[in-house]
Design a protein around this nucleic acid. Structure first.
Lengths: 415, 415
DNA sequence: TTCATTCGTTCGGCCAGCGAACGTATTCGG
DNA sequence: CCGAATACGTTCGCTGGCCGAACGAATGAA
């Protein structure tokens, strides 16, 4: 609210661009919807809405759905919906023990989803890019059979990303440092002529929760994404909070015990050492290394084995989860006090393990933020599977298309 | 970047409003500046700038400064500056051991500054409001002699604030809970007919740093405001980050030791117990209670006494600062990893104590964020005095006026 | 069938930014 | 000392885009 939000002048062209995005966004949120309803909802007049809808129809971003609106009096309106064919977003994910690709259409329906297990820890980035490129090609081909064209791509990685250059500066769990992922993928991803974003996996997983999970009603929340590493995606006012360099939400290396064991990051006593996937498995008496190649959070993976023991009421496993929940809750309390979210969402393996972990998590979280604020944060469990990040990445891409339809209009006069 | 930034339609009126704010902001940042320079800087054409400047002159937000631009060829332009008389913002501050009031003009020049010591801990809020009202009245009167009129007011308090209702929900160090401060002040502040905002003191102190301290070049930073309590103000992209309920940045009650002593907030082992003003004084062998009534950070106050001992190389005092810096650095490391600022600014008493505290602070901070990010945050020392929050509050008010000049135009047709 | 009602389109008006041309003020060079 | 060059600020006609009112179209109810 301080200072003009952008420092660019507003001219009739920009005015139109924003109103077009406004209308398109309203269609996305409330489809099917008629022109008259759009006018009421956006605050624009019917005439303006009609003109804008005409453009969107022309660009095939929106289609008329002949059916009429039931019930009321008077002439029925023609319903508008986002195009189910045409443009779509491609989301990719590199993680320690799997790769994923998915395609999401403008209406944020997931149309293609591929996951492929495999141990990428320490593997040559070029080799990983090669595999990911093949997976992406398969996803794009599958999307093409449904009439979908990829408009842009986003890759999620578990590490710190320089978004300007598309470089992974540090991904300790992959043992990647300074990997120019966008350039590596440029040659291999079929939609290479389209923009390729690189993002942190926890960030896009949080957005995945917003769009594909139970987060539709949420506006301000933190999504804790537990895998081999632990990241937090911070969403404020429906917008991702990235910090100055896009590195915000690095929860896994919060110091819990300054005198604790050394961590791969170089620090000591990091949260990951207490409740990262491997720490939990080890504490529960499972061998994380042997099981690493079979995929995070899948029923046949190491977490699946852990769930089996938990369901069998294995005492050591139950104790491990109890302890992990407590550590996680303590770290989350600090997070809540600094970032002030409305809700804390447990995602990744924590969603799978929530039945055994959430009680101690809640207790530690609430103990850490006593009385000082009016309402303690709500706690929610993510409903998304292991490819949350890939879907969030794809959704990020389609969200960008909805927010900037001006770039997609075919009218050559606008170039 | 995701979703339309606002969900209101843009019409010619809004276009004008934003361009007017753009021009006014450019005047504020670059005064003195001519119309032609404004056109170049904003991207608007000379004709549009002229029309807008005409409006701003009419509203007496901007004045022509007859002097010409020196040196270059061609006809000189007429310089424009923000009006030094006319509208101004009133900033007030309630803190544990003092009250402050200040008036800031549109150019963010501090025109009136009053500070009044006194122990407000546990004092009846109505009595404090009465005192603050008198201080405010004196400030407004002093401003009036300089031709200034108060357009709006902002009160800073060391606690959690519900900004919607202007209520202090929890201020442990004042022992205030659920105090309807805006209503209490409504009757007493002379500018009562103008809007009154209530804000957290650490938040506005951070903004004070931006506007009145060395922070002019900063865009993304965290300002750690040490007084009796400890708060962090988070600024991202030049904008204050408030979180979902305006409670973000609550650093003082970060848990350092889950098994530590109980804190007033109800938790245990909070940061404030390690490096709040009273903890430091006590560790240094001074009696915080006896000295509490004499004002934070002033040469004659308890911190002044501490500085005396430090300058005399008192071993106990030096050790206390060393330890406090370490604790603060550890907490700041978590903050940096979660919020990802560019710079960490030490403010409040930490600015005064920086010579004895910053080394251990830096060491602990950097130890806590090793290798994992490209560049560690810079560390800066605030140059503002104890009334940073009051000045930031006043600046917040004037910033609002600059960002929404439309509300200040006298043209009755716009009402 | 007729009327009320709502939908979507069309048309004139207006706001506001743009670009070009113009008058003006100043410096420079002859 | 005076014209040429340069830059500033204003004026004027044009255009993009939103608005409001009026109108034809489609439907249900009487």
């Amino acid at each position: 609210m301080v200072g003009p939000s952008g420092d660019l002048p507003l001219r009739p062209r920009e005015m139109r661009d924003r109103n077009r995005a406004l209308v398109l966004d309203a269609v996305a949120r409330h489809e099917p919807i008629t022109r008259a309803q759009l006018a009421a909802r956006t605050g624009l007049t019917k005439s303006s809405v009609s003109a804008i809808v005409g453009e969107l129809l022309g660009a095939h971003l929106v289609v008329e759905q002949g059916t009429r609106r039931g019930g009321d009096l008077g002439r029925p309106g023609t319903e508008l919906v986002l195009a189910r064919d045409g443009l779509a977003g491609l989301g990719l994910e590199v993680n320690v023990d799997y790769l994923a690709a998915c395609v999401v259409d403008l209406a944020r329906r997931s149309r293609v989803q591929f996951v492929e297990g495999g141990d990428n820890r320490g593997r040559d980035p070029a080799a990983v890019a090669e595999l990911l490129g093949r997976l992406a090609a398969a996803a794009v081909a599958a999307a093409a059979t449904q009439g979908l064209t990829i408009g842009a791509t986003c890759v999620a990685v578990p590490g710190l990303v320089d978004q300007g250059t598309g470089t992974v500066s540090h991904a300790p769990n992959l043992e990647w440092h300074g990997v120019a992922l966008r350039r590596l993928l440029g040659d291999r991803v079929p939609a290479a002529h389209t923009p390729v974003l690189v993002e942190n996996d926890a960030n896009v997983a949080a957005l995945g929760e917003l769009w594909f999970g139970g987060g539709a009603a949420l506006r301000d929340y933190v999504h804790i994404s537990g895998k081999v590493g632990i990241g937090a995606g911070i969403v404020v006012g429906g917008q991702l909070f990235r910090g100055a360099h896009g590195h915000a939400g690095e929860l896994g290396h919060t110091t819990l015990d300054p005198d604790g064991d050394p961590c791969m990051c170089g620090g000591r006593g990091c949260l990951e050492l207490f409740c990262g996937q491997e720490a939990i498995l080890r504490a529960a008496g499972l061998d994380p290394a042997a099981a690493a190649a079979t995929g995070t959070g899948r029923a046949d993976g190491p977490v699946g084995a852990l769930v089996g023991r938990l369901e069998a009421r294995d005492a050591r496993a139950l104790a491990a989860l109890e302890a992990a929940g407590g550590s996680l809750g303590t770290a989350a309390a600090s997070l809540v006090k600094l970032v002030d979210p409305d809700t804390v969402v447990l995602g990744g393996i924590y969603a799978v393990l929530a039945p055994w972990l959430s009680a101690s998590f809640r207790r530690a979280l609430l103990e850490g933020i006593p009385m000082t604020r009016a309402a303690p944060p709500r706690i929610a469990i993510s409903t998304l599977g292991p490819d949350a990040a890939a879907r969030g990445a794809a959704g990020l891409v389609t969200a960008g298309m909805l927010a900037h339809p001006d770039a997609l209009l075919s009218d050559p006069a606008r170039a």
